[in-house]
Design a protein around this nucleic acid. Structure first.
Lengths: 152, 152
DNA sequence: CGGCATCCGAATGGATACTG
DNA sequence: CAGTATCCATTCGGATGCCG
């Protein structure tokens, strides 16, 4: 078993064994060797933080239905400011998740669409979204109980 | 600061000063029903931000293998400070993802373990982790290309 | 051992105004 | 229409010191 697989399955990120997850083979590129690479873990954390930022996934999900223009996106995502939409789109473009197409007309037209990489992200994010929806009641309840104890 | 004030201000997951405990955000529910509720989206976004914060998922995955004590966790997660580990654990405990068990001995012993809810989160998060690992090369490459164009 | 309190720089993100 | 630029409040997160 290579290092990356091990990390994915049970390394730092998935902790030790007995999670019940069978080891599957994953095609891998290179691994720096030296057992468990902190670099991989760092990368994963970094990518997770992009997923977790306030607007990125809302943009991705808004673009899941197809290409949208800047202001279409802005209207589709409630509460986002122009500044944050710009910044978020730049970040997604930089990571290769979104493609930006400029049509130099008057007025200018800029279209945003998911790349193949961006589309591949929809699935895992949607599953996390499912989890969130299915468990939000439990979480809210847990919070209330916790805060109640805290007050006393 | 009292809980009422904290809740009123509606923060993110890990907020409040010092060792403050995460602040509530999900307002009382009520889904207008019909396709796409802004509330649901808000909840999902909020939970994604918990997933995306710097340490929460590393803690969850470290606990995937079983109960750990405070300093065991600290050693398991490279680079985490004591303060952030405490804050992260409080946040996870508040959300009902982690259970904290205190054994009043000398020296004190505190065990942390995933709850059923916390365990149910492992799967979707692990899938996102898989995605991150499998695509990190592409992302890094995309970033380099983007930054290179930017320079010119 | 397992915290909490304090200080502080860095990053996030909203509001507003201006531009090609 | 699709941005930039500026300012500003809030929050994140590390370092350090103290405590039961």
């Amino acid at each position: 078993m290579d290092t990356v697989t091990r990390i994915a399955q049970e390394g730092t990120f998935l902790s030790d064994s007995h999670t019940g997850v069978p080891v599957a083979s994953v095609s891998v590129a290179e691994v720096p060797e030296g057992g468990h690479s902190p670099c991989a873990c760092k990368t994963v954390t970094e990518i997770l933080s992009r997923v977790g930022d306030k607007w990125s996934m809302q943009v991705v999900m808004s673009l899941a239905g197809g290409t949208l223009r800047f202001n279409e996106l802005r209207r589709a995502i409630d509460g986002i400011s122009q500044r944050m939409l710009t910044r978020t789109l730049r970040g997604l473009e930089r990571d290769g998740l979104v493609e930006r197409t400029v049509t130099p007309s008057v007025p200018p037209r800029v279209d945003y669409a998911l790349t193949a990489l961006g589309r591949s992200l929809r699935q895992p994010v949607a599953e996390l979204g499912q989890w969130a929806l299915q468990n939000r009641e439990m979480i809210v309840t847990a919070r209330e109980r916790f805060d109640a104890e805290d007050d006393s």
